[in-house]
Each structure stands twice: as C-alpha cells, then as structure tokens.
C-alpha cells in the first residue's frame, strides 16, 4: 500500500483588462481554475496509481467553498479522495504566506502519513514557488524542486528524478522516500476529465478540515508578512504600435521587416 498526497490550489486568472480594488483585483475580472502546475502533479500521481497496485491518491487544498469545484477536477481525473482546509478565520487574511501554508499542509501530511507528496512548482497567482520545499523541511521529508521526470522505486525507497535547471540542462538526482517533489509543467500530458470521471467525482469524499481539526487556532494564520500595496506596473513600453485594421497593421509591419532585409531572398 502506498499513498500519494497531491496539493492543489485554485488560482485566479486575470482578464486582459482589469481593475485593482484595494489590495486585490476586482472579482469581476477574475476567473478561477486549477493551478496549471498542480494539474501536472495530479496527473503524475494518477499515472503512478494506474501503473501500480494499491496506490491511494489523496488531494488536499487550502481554499474556500468555491474551490470544491476545482478539487473535484482532481477527483474526476482520478484522485481517490480529497481534503479541503478552510475556516472562517481565513476570510480576513489578505495573503497566506509560505510559513502559514507550511504549518497547515504539514499538519495534513502528518495526519495522512503519505510516502510521496507532489506539489506544483509554483502557483500561478502569488508565485512564491516555495511551499513544497518548505513543507518537506517541516515534516522532515526529503525533497526535489522543479521535477520534470519521475521514476519511482518504492521498493528501493527512492525516487529517481530529473530537475529542470536553466539553459536546457537537467540534473539527475536520487531522492530518498518519503519525499516532497515539486512538479514542473511538461512532465506528462494531463488528461481531460472523462464524463465517467466527472460522475464518479460527485460521489467521492471531500473532507473539510478546520483549523481546530488540525490542532490550531486562528493564530496559525498570523504572519509577519503583509501585503500592503498592489498596482499595475507602469508600462515601460516604448514600442511603436501600428494602428489600423489587420490589413493596415500587417502592411506597416511588412514594411519594417522589408527594411530590415526580411523576405528579400
């Protein structure tokens, strides 16, 4: 029996034109979806489960009730059950920092006692890129960040991974289990949930967990890190923008390209 815990996050995607309202983006311009990196982490876990026997995949999220829709996607793709950590106390928090997320997720890891934890490299919204490795340290697991290939040797007690470094170089590393791996996009091809999967997901359990259930009070969310401002970056653009319809703009661009010798041969 092997257990894989996958952390997933519902992230907000921002429309092209948006407005900032105080310390956040106006809700009217946000659309919620499963974090891109987590989609790959879920797929990786499900593929391991499908290839082995007796592998349980549990997905965990920290998020409001709305995020049940997102976590159902993980269930529809093949996770066996889910946990959703939330509490009224979260409503008044502008930014959940890495340390707070670490406390909460580490408590879940300790309850579930998995052999492997998969997270995304980063969340597309706040982009800290730190939670997985921080949790690993907190629970005393080994870890590897930015993994784009995973070969699990559960009997040998190791995971052989490739870490994607900069500049087209990969590092081949052997990591002792239990471990936390942060999963990079491209490691696999995430499936679309099938109709059958979506139906089955309706019957799967999403267990709610409050701060109290995890053995905390509201102070677990306290953080010395505060979000105190949000603004649209000043455009540094000094680009020449061509005006007109498609034909006109294309003609102007073509002229610039020809001047630079493109298409001359």
């Amino acid at each position: 029996m092997m257990k894989i815990l996958v952390t997933v996050k519902e992230v907000a995607e921002v429309e092209d034109d948006f407005e900032i309202d105080g310390l956040g983006i106006d809700e009217a311009y946000l659309e919620y979806d499963l974090n891109e990196w987590d989609d790959y982490a879920v797929e990786e876990a499900v593929q391991i489960a499908e290839a082995g026997d007796d592998v349980e995949v549990v997905s965990v999220t920290i998020g409001p009730e709305r995020s049940e829709e997102t976590i159902r996607m993980a269930l529809a793709k093949g996770a066996d059950r889910a946990i959703r950590v939330w509490d009224d106390a979260f409503e008044s928090v502008d930014l959940l920092d890495v340390a707070a997320k670490t406390r909460l997720l580490a408590a879940v890891v300790e309850k579930e006692d998995p052999d492997l934890v998969l997270t995304g490299v980063q969340a597309a919204d706040d982009g800290f890129g730190a939670t997985g490795v921080s949790v690993a340290d907190e629970v005393g697991f080994e870890w590897a960040a930015v993994v784009n290939e995973l070969d699990l040797d559960a009997d040998g007690g190791v995971a052989n991974v490739r870490r994607e470094l900069e500049g087209g170089v990969e590092e081949l590393t052997e990591v002792d289990l239990p471990a936390v791996l942060t999963i990079q996009t491209g490691i696999n091809e995430p499936r679309y949930a099938s109709l059958r999967g979506i139906r089955q997901a309706q019957r799967k359990e999403i267990a709610p967990m409050s701060l109290d259930d995890l053995g905390f009070d509201a102070s677990a969310l306290d953080s010395p890190i505060a979000l105190t401002g949000m603004s649209e970056p000043e455009s540094e653009s000094d680009a020449t923008l061509f005006e007109g319809d498609a034909e006109e703009t294309a003609a102007q661009l073509a002229e610039v390209l020809r001047e630079k010798g493109v298409g001359a041969q």
Binding site: V14, I20, A124, I225, L227, G229, M230, S231, E232, P233
Partner: peptide
C-alpha cells in the same frame, strides 16, 4: 503576482 500583471508591496 498574476504572471507580472500586478506589482505588490510586501512589508
């Protein structure tokens, strides 16, 4: 944050 769409101040 949000893939460079906004800049935030963190204290």
């Amino acid at each position: 944050m949000y893939g460079s769409k906004v800049e935030t101040t963190i204290e």
